[in-house]
């Protein structure tokens, strides 16, 4: 049986080991304390709710990214997919009834993800290449369908979505609730469902998985389709928040998603990573942006700090695996 937290702490060097093992959670807590100390505005409900709203979109695609990365793959197309699917959703909201618009957008996301899945699983294309190609295709299609400019919601359905996306329950923004539900679903699937076990097995040793009778291709295909579906949900969330779908949305989000997954301790070789840690990765990236904004740091230095945090987090993990 796994050691209890108490046992871990009381073993020699236990506290340090415990800290290193759960480093993402501690980095997160340290950042929260630090933020609260240097800014009076940080712990206001307006700021916290803004922070959650900001990270939810990237957060949702990060979960898809995690699932793909667990198999040893990568999905570079998700940022552009968010743009294409946000435009798609805006067009659909203005033409069909809302439930159908939501359903169709998610199905299209599933379909686009399936293309990547097909290329990787059945055509044995390198995930990096297949999704890189889809990334430019999706971005291009987004501009074509929107004719280059944002499409605003014009119907009652659009208004409903916009209200939903900007309201809160008990102080928690609705869209953050959507994000948290997805995180919890992913946690449950990865921990207690066969699906999670199999993709982790595949990521840690693909040939052994195949020789254990796992239908490796089927699951490879599925993870990209799921990633596409989650990109669709992220697209609906961000479009509803701003009341429009724009082909410029989701710019470089795939990189933020990869960064969040990596800060969360996942291995790009596959087989290692959890949904809770990815959530921490998303929040850490969001927090850094938030606190630097509060301190009026311009966006370019922000990028430098973000990069430094990624390097720091990965170095810490190497320490952990020793």
């Amino acid at each position: 049986m796994a050691l209890t937290i108490k046992e871990q702490l009381s073993s020699p060097g236990g506290i340090l080991k415990f800290l290193i093992k759960h480093n993402t959670i501690f980095i997160f807590i340290l950042l929260v304390i630090f933020s609260a100390l240097i800014s009076d505005v940080f712990f206001t409900s307006v700021n916290l709710s803004n922070l959650l709203k900001q990270v939810s979109g990237i957060g949702i695609i990060s979960i898809g990214m995690l699932i793909v990365i667990l198999t040893g793959g990568i999905d570079l197309s998700v940022g552009s997919m968010v743009a294409l699917l946000a435009v798609t959703f805006a067009i659909l909201v203005n033409t069909v009834v809302l439930p159908l618009a939501i359903l169709l957008t998610i199905l299209i996301g599933f379909g686009l993800g399936s293309v990547a899945g097909y290329l990787v699983a059945f055509q044995k294309m390198a995930p990096f290449i297949a999704t890189l190609a889809l990334m430019t295709v999706a971005r291009g299609l987004g501009f074509i369908y929107s004719k280059g400019s944002p499409i605003t919601f014009k119907t009652a359905g659009g208004e409903f979505m916009s209200n939903f996306a900007n309201n809160s329950i008990l102080g928690i923004p609705n869209i953050a609730i959507v994000f948290f539900i997805i995180v919890i679903l992913a946690m449950v699937m990865l921990r207690y469902n066969v699906f999670g076990r199999l993709i982790i097995a595949m990521g840690s040793n693909e040939e052994a998985s195949r020789l254990s009778g796992i239908k490796v291709n089927k699951y490879k295909f599925l993870v990209y389709a799921i990633s596409g579906s989650l990109a669709a949900i992220a697209a609906i969330v961000v479009a509803s928040r701003t009341n429009l779908g724009s082909p410029n949305m989701g710019m470089a989000w795939e990189l933020d998603a990869i960064a969040a997954v990596v800060i969360g301790g996942a291995s790009l070789n596959g087989g290692k990573g959890t949904a809770l840690n990815t959530l921490m990765g998303v929040l850490i990236l969001g927090l850094i942006g938030n606190i630097l904004n509060l301190l009026n740091v311009p966006s370019y230095p922000q990028q430098v700090v973000k990069g430094a945090i990624i390097i720091f987090a990965v170095l810490l993990q190497r320490f952990e695996s020793k």
């Binding site: 469902n193 066969v194 097995a201 840690s204 040793n205 052994a208 796992i214 087989g271």
Partner: peptide, 28 residues
């Protein structure tokens, strides 16, 4: 080709036996 080195003994052994330890929806 035989074992999953980075995974636990439990996860290694279970990889072939989900039909007996998991329910219909795949929950273990």
């Amino acid at each position: 080709e035989g074992v999953f080195l980075p995974l636990s003994i439990r996860k290694n052994i279970s990889v072939t036996s989900f039909s007996s330890i998991a329910g219909k929806l795949g929950f273990i």
